[in-house]
Design a binder for these strands. Sequence first.
DNA 1: CTACGGATGCCCT
DNA 2: GGGCATCCGTAGA
Length: 258
Amino acid sequence: MNKTEENNRGDLHLFDSQKQIDLFSSVHPRLNHLYFDKACEELAKSLLGKIFVRKLGREILKGKIVETECYLGGIDKASHSYNGRITERNRPMYMKPGTTYVYLTYGMYYCFNISSRGDGAAVLLRALEPITGFDYMNEQRCNKRKKKNVSSDDAEVKKSTKQKELKVQELCNGPAKLCISFGIDKSCNEKDLSEFDSMWCEDDSSETQQELQIVSCPRIGIDSAGIEWASKPLRFYIFGNPFVSKRDKVHEKMLFDM
DNA sequence: CTACGGATGCCCT
DNA sequence: GGGCATCCGTAGA
């Protein structure tokens, strides 16, 4: 773990110039819009192991997608698009495959989704394994937390600036945390991931040899949708990956009891 | 390790 | 006005 972290931190300077960024992108081409044009569940699983890339000015951020949830649309009581509901907010769920859907929840956190078939279904990104841009991500996360401490007491300020080092595992292990780390807000909403300049998905060529073991389990934070839909195994994550937001040991066992 | 309450503002009925 | 596809700090086992 530490080894890869060091390597990745070291990689940062390689991407300083635009030419090198383009060169890298041509080696790992972005996923085109046809890639996203598949059933929600299939898309949610196939996105695991893919590289999510964010370009912010000269800053390049990368993370491997390690946890997703799918929201099926019309029939899914936990989905914003349940019963075919169309509102100003959930409009991107009905747009072209690969369209981003960013919304605010609990008044202060963003969640990031990708539409699948344009029928109201979408995939929520729940956790990323940071690959490039640790320092930037850490800064974003710490700044957000600092704002929570309203007190302007000198001792408090010193205290909060001092403990300015989150574990890499804590940077993107949650749907809102990854949005903070990757600077995702409303300005990223309704974008086509096959064309958007500052955000896209890539294949991970370094991992082609490994077959991923995928855990399927119930989604998180949707109990109010009722037991039937809350219990359906529509959350997916890479087994054994330490950057997942929350393990489900019961369903991990089922992987091997087949 | 789990449990719980507060933060905080938009969305939808 | 009620309810969040969440996170964080604190308390207790």
